[in-house]
């Protein structure tokens, strides 16, 4: 193993551990605000993994969309909720044993997939910039799905505005 590979491995494991630890915090923390901020670690470590795979566009889009957009919205929603820091759980009907069972099954499936993959994805194999390819693809081969998606998003946006707007009564 060359020094480059060792370094990449170190970075990979650091990112993976950060992601694991933060997602553990997201799942177990009882303080909702801390949960939301732990999500930051998860999103960043995933962005880092994309960067490590040389998916540069995904790397930037992950941070731009998830960290700069969605996470901020989540935190806004949390902060606008009444007394979110010490919330009383009203719904505890789901038993923890069911949860553990489901998680174990999902984990088994993931391990199975990881072990049966034909070959590991080799880091550092591709040098062609992704952004250009994605852009060309979006505007040529997959133009129709792209347009349909954008119309769908626009419809969502208009729907949200309609729901949130208060009618001024005369």
């Amino acid at each position: 193993m060359s020094l480059n590979e060792i370094l990449l491995n170190i970075i990979f494991y650091a990112l993976a551990l950060t992601g694991l630890f933060s997602s553990f915090m997201v799942a177990t923390s009882t303080n909702m605000v801390r949960t939301a901020f732990s999500l930051l670690g998860v999103l960043f470590s995933f962005a880092g993994l994309y960067g490590l795979l040389r998916a540069d566009f995904l790397f930037a889009a992950q941070i731009l969309v998830y960290v700069g957009g969605i996470l901020v919205l989540i935190i806004f929603a949390i902060m606008l909720t009444h007394k979110i820091a010490n919330v009383n759980l009203s719904n505890e009907s789901t038993s923890s044993s069911t949860v553990i069972a489901v998680v174990c099954i999902l984990f088994a499936v993931l391990v199975f997939i990881a072990l049966t993959l034909p070959e590991y994805i080799k880091i550092n194999q591709r040098n062609k910039p992704l952004t250009e390819m994605i852009g060309n693809n979006l505007l040529s081969d997959s133009l129709l799905p792209f347009e349909i998606l954008s119309v769908l998003l626009l419809a969502c946006l208009i729907g949200a505005v309609y729901l949130a707007r208060k009618e001024v009564k005369e």
Partner: peptide, 20 residues
């Protein structure tokens, strides 16, 4: 960086989280 300006916008927006 091949995605220079996108990268700067992305990391610039992460400042909001620190402020919040």
């Amino acid at each position: 960086l091949n995605i220079g300006i996108l990268y700067i916008i992305a990391f610039g927006s992460s400042v909001i989280l620190g402020i919040l």
